[in-house]
Design a protein around this nucleic acid. Sequence first.
DNA 1: CAGAATGTAAGTAAATATATTACAGGCAGG
DNA 2: CCTGCCTGTAATATATTTACTTACATTCTG
Lengths: 151, 151
Amino acid sequence: MQITSKFTIAVHIITAIDYFKDSEKVTSSFLAGSVGANPVIVRNVMGDLKKAGIIDISRGRSGIGLSRKLDEITLFDVYKAVDCVNDEGLFHFHENPSPYCPVGRNIHKALDEELQSVQDAMENQMRKITLADVVGRTRQAIQEEAVERRG
Amino acid sequence: MQITSKFTIAVHIITAIDYFKDSEKVTSSFLAGSVGANPVIVRNVMGDLKKAGIIDISRGRSGIGLSRKLDEITLFDVYKAVDCVNDEGLFHFHENPSPYCPVGRNIHKALDEELQSVQDAMENQMRKITLADVVGRTRQAIQEEAVERRG
DNA sequence: CAGAATGTAAGTAAATATATTACAGGCAGG
DNA sequence: CCTGCCTGTAATATATTTACTTACATTCTG
């Protein structure tokens, strides 16, 4: 199992919006080219980011902008925006433990709190990382790339 | 997306092996009844736990035992045993970022380290929780249940 | 050797993720 | 004000994963 690629696509999109904001006309098709996915996928993710108040877009108007500064967007915000994990939590509990077995009746209750602490640990780490970190690393990697080509 | 129920099934199995070790003949069919899943699913999970050195079983012989004490088995051990997450990691990176786009070429590298730290946070929390914790909670819940019925 | 349990392959069904086509709705520039 | 471009979204298709089931070979115990 893996967390849906919508998440990394969303991060890619935000990064590209910031990176190209002054040099290109940033549209869903342009982003789809950079991401390597279908424009509809990109538009759906864009819709999620819009609902979450992370980017500004509207019908007809071309040009996508960020609603907040990069250091005010965390990976957790993005992860919540694209709805990676449903309400039941990160872990999928087997559906039908036997109600006639004492272990079957009680394992869910006994395990839930522990699993929640694991999910919390993961989400808290996501709150510590901002898009400014990611964009910074990306820009740095692009620069190093240029140095390599030159050298 | 969710982590496969094989994980909670594995925890359920270990708990039931410990709980019933003195009172029942614990077989894959018995466990399947408690878990509410097919015996083959249970046998597959049992196979994973055996490979990981967590339980002792062998063909023909009836009776399943634990290879280690409960407080020497962590949720992380179980999670690794049933192979919840593949080698690529918890997050699914979109496959085809454009090699012709500077962001597309570098986003993967820039994001990987951050994503790894998120996965590490989750796994470290799993290392802190042992099956002794889970079995303890389960036994306690069973006792409270008995009190409720009596009261 | 018989009975019972594990080990495993093969095939099926259901759920999920991703891709694609098609088109309606809305803004901007000429 | 209308043409062209872009977003929004529904409907559908495809691929992958997950879980279930049947069937049978293997192996241990008594």
